[in-house]
Design a protein around this nucleic acid. Structure first.
Lengths: 134, 134
DNA sequence: CTTGACCTTCCCATCATGGGAAGGTCTAGA
DNA sequence: TCTAGACCTTCCCATGATGGGAAGGTCAAG
């Protein structure tokens, strides 16, 4: 299976055919070669790219970050410094997001802790939302 | 200031005028009364609602969840059990999301830890993305 | 009466992804 | 050789919450 249609490439790369077309449309992938009938043709090399993208998406990198990572990956004269920089930035962003969510979780748990959760209507959670100070 | 235009209500409620119109359009808020000229008119009561929504959004509740919370808030025959249930569900979701992000963060930090971050091109981060197993 | 700050509706964009329609292509089997 | 059905193509629309901005109407102060 040296040459593939988009469906096979999608299955092999772990992404949907829909997304492959999208990645091509936004210039993340270079336009695929076409058969005379207009079908996109992919090779093993392309599947490699797709897997890279999938893995980067799984790690939460944005498309723009992946664009940079792909550029570095394909650039033999890259420095690992640059790559690590991108990764560290992303870790920072993840930490930030985790802290935010934990803060929210704390606030909500605090309200819930004081709520009886019984048949009566009195509810510190609703009161807390209604106060809306902060 | 017993009657307000949307701008004042927005400022008082801590949300944008744009969002007030949106909340009305999706039925989260009941349609505002209008002046003969078509301007929306708000009162203190409405600002109270806006604050509630803002606070719930800050705590990460979705619009649909807020729809339910508002319903409970305005229902004198609610049970705090129901409210607490919603809150606990949301806490669960937050925990889930936090765990996900921490897992991602771990994986990325693991790759970065082995990356020299120097002038050479060799980079375990790129290698890790390229493997794309998992 | 004019100016400028407000308001109205409507459309478009974000980000990554999927759904689905309308229509063309390919392949295996009768 | 014909046909069914599994592919492929492009194009448009939707998500969720939010903002930007255009075109045009309203209002209050000077």
């Amino acid at each position: 299976m040296e040459e593939m249609n988009i469906g096979q490439a999608a299955a092999a790369g772990g992404v949907s055919a829909k997304m492959i077309r999208h990645y091509e449309a936004i210039g993340l992938l270079s336009p695929a070669r076409r058969t005379p009938a207009g079908y996109r043709v992919y090779r093993h090399h392309d599947v490699h790219n797709l897997r890279f993208i999938r893995q980067a998406r799984r790690l939460g990198f944005s498309i723009e970050q992946i664009r940079q990572l792909l550029g570095l990956w394909q650039n033999q004269r890259r420095t690992s410094r640059k790559v690590k920089e991108l990764a560290m930035q992303h870790i920072e962003a993840l930490d930030e997001r985790i802290r935010e969510l934990q803060k929210i979780r704390q606030a909500l748990a605090h309200l819930a802790r004081h709520c009886q959760g019984d048949e009566r209507p009195d509810c510190p959670i609703l009161d807390g939302l209604a106060k809306g100070d902060v």
